[in-house]
Amino acid sequence: MSSVWSNQPFKALYTVFFVLKLVVLVPLVSLRYSLRAARSSPEWSLRVCVLAVFTREFFDYYARTRSHGLAAVQAAHVKANSQFSLAEVADPSLYSALLAPGAAKPAPVGGLWFPGPPTPETDLRHEKVVLHFPGGAFVLAFGTPTSGKDVAGVMTRHLKATRTFVAQYRLSTDDSTRFPAALQDLVTFYCHILSLGLDPKNVILSGDSAAGNLVIALLRYLEDLRSPRLPLPGGAMLWSPWVHVTAEAGRDYAGCRNSDKDVLTASVLQWGADAYLPRGKPTADTLPFISPLHHPFRTSVPLFINAGGSEAFFDSAKDFAREMAEVRGNRIRFHATDLSPHNLLMSHKGLGMNHQMEVAAKDAYSFFN
């Protein structure tokens, strides 16, 4: 359901109110959390406490005003034209079963290469590429050069990746972009990467938050499809994956341990679920692709899962990792980052958790190798 604040002139009025609110909050929050006893977690630094409050405020603003940020990402893609690459729709036969065109149809989608795209002369057969999908509750766009550069830096330094491709799938904005549109896009991006001549074993999938959910769905789809034209990747990484997506997402989140101090909000998750879930109740065939918790599956792809000890998704991510590990033949590594709130990969620089990010990434590297 659309919010009254998402339409003008109410959106402009709410934005003015939001800015004034932040001006008042800055000194109050800084003063409050200068006292360690008042902090959400006594072990958190003042910096983490303050940033958690303001991140929640921004997420709530996005949800109330339905500000998805897609126009800004698209504009950034145009400005970064030398790094931009468009993935065209693949062979229609590769979008089968639940991905077959219906209300949602495969479409061209774009992303950014870091440090830059391969040239026609590049021999990609021995390059290691991370195909990363940014989170955003299915409704927020984060595929910008700035955030992409941070992610690529981690992959280059600690995962020894030659290149990183940050792929911005379609957001859920109307019925044509509900599930399975974003999953169709992941297939499109993966086909695009393989079409360049990469050895699939040198491709590592990566996704944070809601995109971690999508990476799980892509793996399940590839395992079910078993097409020689879509061979399995060498590994996959999930960073704070959203594995329990239901029509009551906001209520589910509010009932989670750590939800009162984590950076996400019930409002943004409810918006995401409302926009992403298909019309009507998910079927038995589609539910595992939407909400993978309690729906483990067999995969020969090594799967690395990271979650923060101070985030609300921690328990569900850990439970999903355990369920997957119990499937015979699966290789699963669950890495817990103590004290980290949601999405260490995207927030480590702002939170001053560079060391924790390095430890997690190096663990992923050792796991894959």
Rank of each mutant, 00 (worst) to 15 (best):
Lys349Pro: 01
Ala284Trp: 07
Leu232Glu: 11
Ala275His: 14
Ala37Cys: 12
His355Cys: 11
Asp363Arg: 15
Gly352Phe: 03
Thr173Phe: 06
His342Glu: 12
Ile216Trp: 02
Asp150Trp: 00
Ala273Glu: 08
Ala161Cys: 04
Leu70Asp: 15
Arg157His: 12
Thr283Lys: 05
Ile216Asp: 01
Ile305Pro: 07
Asp150Tyr: 05
Leu345Asn: 10
Phe133Arg: 04
Trp44Ile: 07
Val78Trp: 03
Gly255His: 02
Ala76Arg: 05
Ala211Pro: 06
Leu51His: 07
Val19Lys: 13
Ala38Lys: 09
Ser240Leu: 05
Glu248Trp: 03
Ala312Cys: 12
Ala364Cys: 09
Gly255Glu: 15
Arg279Trp: 02
Thr286His: 04
Ser45Arg: 10
Val129Ala: 04
Val203Ile: 13
Ala266His: 12
Thr119Asp: 04
Ala71Glu: 15
Val139Ser: 02
Pro118Gln: 09
His126Leu: 08
Gly197Ile: 12
Lys160Leu: 08
Ser291His: 06
Phe58Ile: 15
Pro278Phe: 05
Pro231Trp: 07
Gly148Arg: 11
Ala284Glu: 02
Ile216His: 00
Gly329Leu: 05
Ser40Thr: 00
Ala317Asp: 14
His294Pro: 00
Gly309Ser: 08
Pro241Ser: 04
Pro115Gln: 10
Thr283Val: 06
Phe84His: 10
Leu238Trp: 07
Lys261Arg: 13
Leu232Gln: 11
Ala38Ser: 12
Phe320Met: 13
Val4Met: 11
Pro292Lys: 06
Pro292Gly: 10
Ala100Leu: 12
Leu159Glu: 02
Leu124Asn: 00
Gly116Asn: 03
Trp5Arg: 09
Ala360Lys: 04
Ala247Ile: 04
Val327Thr: 09
Ala182Phe: 06
Val16Lys: 00
Pro200Ile: 06
Tyr221His: 07
Val203His: 11
Thr299Leu: 01
Ser316Tyr: 08
Thr144Asp: 07
Glu311Ser: 03
Leu28Pro: 02
Asp123Cys: 07
Gly135Thr: 08
Arg226Ala: 15
Asp199Pro: 09
Ser209Arg: 04
Glu358Trp: 06
His77Gln: 11
Asn343Asp: 15
Pro134Gly: 09
Thr299Pro: 01
Thr265Tyr: 10
Ala361Glu: 06
Trp242Asp: 03
Arg279Asn: 14
Val4Cys: 09
Arg220Pro: 10
Val245Met: 12
Tyr61Ala: 09
Tyr61Cys: 04
Ser34Asp: 05
Leu22Trp: 08
Asp274Tyr: 02
Ala167Asn: 00
Ser340Glu: 00
